[in-house]
Design a protein around this nucleic acid. Structure first.
Lengths: 202, 202
DNA sequence: CGCTTATTGTACCGCCTGGTACTTAATTAG
DNA sequence: CTAATTAAGTACCAGGCGGTACAATAAGCG
């Protein structure tokens, strides 16, 4: 359902398409500089009036939080699911590397991971969005750590380092790769760097 | 000389202190989000009127370029000089690591390397500043590459990788470290990650 | 039909931005 | 002392921002 779940029987019918707005906003934030993208612009692009957008999302902070949640559901979720599955460590790592070295919304100028972009812009996010970023960061670290622990148990991860540090290290390297892609570096070079950096996990 | 080099013999004497403005601007850009810092704010902080600032630097782009040049002279220069000297590779690498894991202007909330911050915000820099960023990036890569080549010749660098890739890799890891520091990560953890990532250079 | 309810968009608000026209102040040359 | 020269800052500009008051619109209910 693209419109609101509960439809009141009276009053003017809702025509505002929440999902469409979120799509437009997500792709906009994703492929452009977050700080340079105004609410006005998102209204223009999604064909919705400003009060309409405010009625649905309260304010800019609310919209960005909603966008981030959507991104988690649509993009990050599948990756985390892969890490939680019983895919062999090396294979999962390879998947992770190709994912990070090439994340982009569509054919347009690729721009890394939206979550990481937001984390980089942390300082000028609204309260709610910042809290969501923190939540996703923690969730990501936990996912990595458990993944490493399970891999250790399976004997597929033998590097001598704590699972906690490994998780932090992986997070840092993926973050770095995303930044590079966003900056316009050649994805192949980004991947090469990532492979080199993650080669210490063996 | 803090005031302009050539003093015309006639007319009202100049009181505008270029160096002071650059100091204020550099520290401001350094420890705060570049995108959130307006020219008005810099005028307020440096006690100069807006037309005064425009007369000296033409526009925001000119100011940021001047700031970046100053940063290169005051901060990056000494580091590059160290890499161009005959300090043993390991020692130079250690210096580089401590530098990157702790760069901050003063006691205030540390914020990584200004050059790298600017490179991250590349998209919303002015033309002149962006060109300067590109120039410094290239200069940095060349410095790293020559350093690696000299170290290879001295037998202090034996990892099997091209000097060009090594330079790119070092740049990427330092950049990553700076981002983390700027994001507020614990400098000790940043250093630990950096040591791990650069451990492949041996 | 009119009343209520819910949703719409126009047209505005105050604020801040980068940038500038213009008057005033401070100095030297004649 | 006056004129010329140079630099200073006040006070403004258009434009964009996040955010909102409010009237118009479209449905169901009686």
């Amino acid at each position: 359902m693209s419109l609101d779940s509960i439809k009141p029987s009276r009053g003017r019918p809702k025509t505002l398409d929440r999902d469409h707005i979120l799509d437009v906003a997500m792709n906009s934030y994703w492929k452009e500089n977050i700080a340079n993208l105004s609410l006005n612009e998102i209204c223009r692009r999604s064909g919705v009036s400003k009060p309409g957008l405010y009625r649905e999302f309260s304010n800019e902070d609310g919209l960005m939080k909603a966008v981030l949640i959507r991104y988690q559901e649509q993009v990050l979720g599948p990756v985390q699911q892969m890490l939680n599955s019983d895919v062999p460590f090396r294979e999962a790592l390879d998947n992770l590397i190709s994912f990070a070295a090439s994340v982009s919304c569509h054919d347009e100028s690729p721009n890394g991971c939206l979550f990481i972009k937001m984390r980089e812009s942390r300082t000028h996010l609204g309260e709610a969005t910042r809290a969501q970023v923190d939540f996703l960061e923690e969730q990501g670290l936990v996912t990595f750590q458990k993944w490493v622990e399970r891999s250790k148990a399976k004997g597929e991860f033998s590097a001598e380092m704590s699972s906690e540090f490994a998780a932090t290290y992986i997070d840092a390297q993926l973050s770095n790769a995303s930044s590079q892609v966003a900056r316009g570096e050649d994805p192949q070079m980004v991947q090469k760097i990532l492979v080199a950096a993650l080669s210490i996990l063996k």
